[in-house]
Amino acid sequence: MKMFEAAQSSESVSGPPSRIDYVVDRTFRGLAKLGAWMILAIVAALVLEVGRKAVPAITEYHLGFLTSTTWDANKDQFGILPEIWGTLYSSLLALIIGGFFGVIMAIFLTQDFLPPRLASIFRTIVELLAAIPSVVYGLWGIFVVIPAIRPVADWLHETLGWLPFFGTTLSGPGMLPAALVLAIMVLPTIAAVSQDALRLVPFRIKEAAYGLGATRWEAILKVMLPTASTGIFGALVLGFGRALGETMALAMLVGNSNQISLSLFAPANTLAALLALNFPEAGETEVKVLMYAALVLMLITLAVNVAGTAIMTMTTQQWVKRK
């Protein structure tokens, strides 16, 4: 490590890093690399292990498993179409409701509607929603949400019963209470990420809108939201991903009934709830089948996230070429 000796003098403090410095540097780099690869390795191991355990069921039931609607462990008949439908339907409803309110909330908390201190209090409260355990949400759904929506549900069924959405009566647990609770559960994620996206819009863009004589709503709807749209879309994808995988609250609220119905009041089932409720008592064959179902759930979540990221990069590239 003898270099630049000509630059050395008795007073000079400058010198090369010591051997220990290099060792520390290399160790740290190694650890960082290990951490990064570890994430990939864990995901790969998970998918592979679940996949491996699902292979017997895949060879036995093939793709018919995805399109068949009966689940009878005694007759060894298994199909998860109702669960796939229930997972997507409940998540989509939650995304519509939670997304709407989440984005509205993000606008409300970032666009100077409130004095800064009050806004930060509100923000903390919204974030606290994420800290509530999902079993508590489930209980709240059973004891508060279901009784509260029952009169509305009955009225809707009686007056608008010809619409498929209101085609059945609310017997207790069902799609609507599950979707409502799920909406509240995804709301903090959507609100928080949307707030970040809106806050990232430079002040000069806002100034430009107001400088042209835009009213507050024109500035928000025509400038702020479109500018932040990529980030808000990301928030919605994250929220949808969270809704797809949510288990406990849905297992308590969705009704666990293997049927496909557009009705908001009918009981249904989701993949996550099916897995959670059936594993404890599953026999050998059923475990293999449940592994197949778990694999399907993982693939759906993965597909949603990949599609979301792809759409985000495409729209970003289109508009923000120089930045």
């Binding site: 430079p202 000069r204 863009i205 430009a208 400088g211 042209l212 004589g213 479109p226 508009w319």
Partner: peptide, 14 residues
């Protein structure tokens, strides 16, 4: 709307 403005930093919309 009657008194327009041009700012220090160019700020076109996206």
């Amino acid at each position: 709307r009657y008194i327009g403005m041009v700012f220090q930093q160019p700020n076109p919309f996206a």
